[in-house]
């Protein structure tokens, strides 16, 4: 099985954004797995619960709402946390392929737009879009905003490099 984005390779802003979402999606599973063996942790504020909150706040808000809906209606921490990690895994494999395809630049632009929309949505005065008291909303926002800046910088650098490249000469004529 060939895995996608390598930690050792060169990290672009888009790679970093994808990985951050993947790691964030894994934090709830880590929390649920540990709490399932130590139930008293569930009712306390701990570093683990903060990491859970950070994970939920960092993933795109529609995904977080979908996972919460799954939790509410299916009634299980196991299901939603496993589904979240499985989705993150598929997302990583899929994005790795897309980012390295011929449409890589277009995919980065779309990713930047989606992150931007996700960030703007968090400011909208719509109750269902707020983090409902999850404590890591601000760090998660900064993390996502940082990713967006990195993608935009990459896109600008790419554009500059394209512009500064010498035009092909017709020396064979």
């Amino acid at each position: 099985m060939k895995f996608g984005v390598s930690i050792r390779g060169r990290l672009t802003g888009a790679d970093l954004a994808v990985r951050i979402v993947q790691i964030a999606a894994a934090l709830p599973l880590l929390y649920v797995a540990i709490v399932s063996g130590w139930l008293s942790l569930a009712t306390r504020k701990t570093v683990l619960s903060y990491l859970f909150s950070l994970g939920v706040c960092t993933i795109p808000r529609p995904v977080a709402l979908g996972a919460a809906a799954l939790y509410r209606h299916a009634g299980g921490e196991v299901l939603f946390s496993m589904v979240l990690v499985a989705a993150a895994l598929l997302y990583g494999l899929w994005m790795n392929r897309l980012l390295r395809s011929n449409h890589g630049r277009r995919v980065r632009v779309i990713l930047a737009v989606l992150i931007g929309l996700d960030l703007i949505a968090r400011f909208l005065p719509l109750g269902f879009l707020d983090a409902f008291g999850l404590s890591a909303e601000l760090p998660a926002f900064l993390l996502r905003a940082g990713c967006l800046v990195l993608i935009l910088l990459d896109l600008r650098a790419e554009k500059t490099a394209e512009n500064s490249r010498p035009a092909p000469t017709n020396s064979g004529a």
């Binding site: 895995f3 996608g4 984005v5 930690i7 993947q22 894994a26 993150a88 895994l89 990583g92 790795n96």
Partner: peptide, 8 residues
């Protein structure tokens, strides 16, 4: 190589 996907 240890990728994020492998970690997940």
């Amino acid at each position: 190589k240890l990728s994020v996907n492998a970690l997940l």
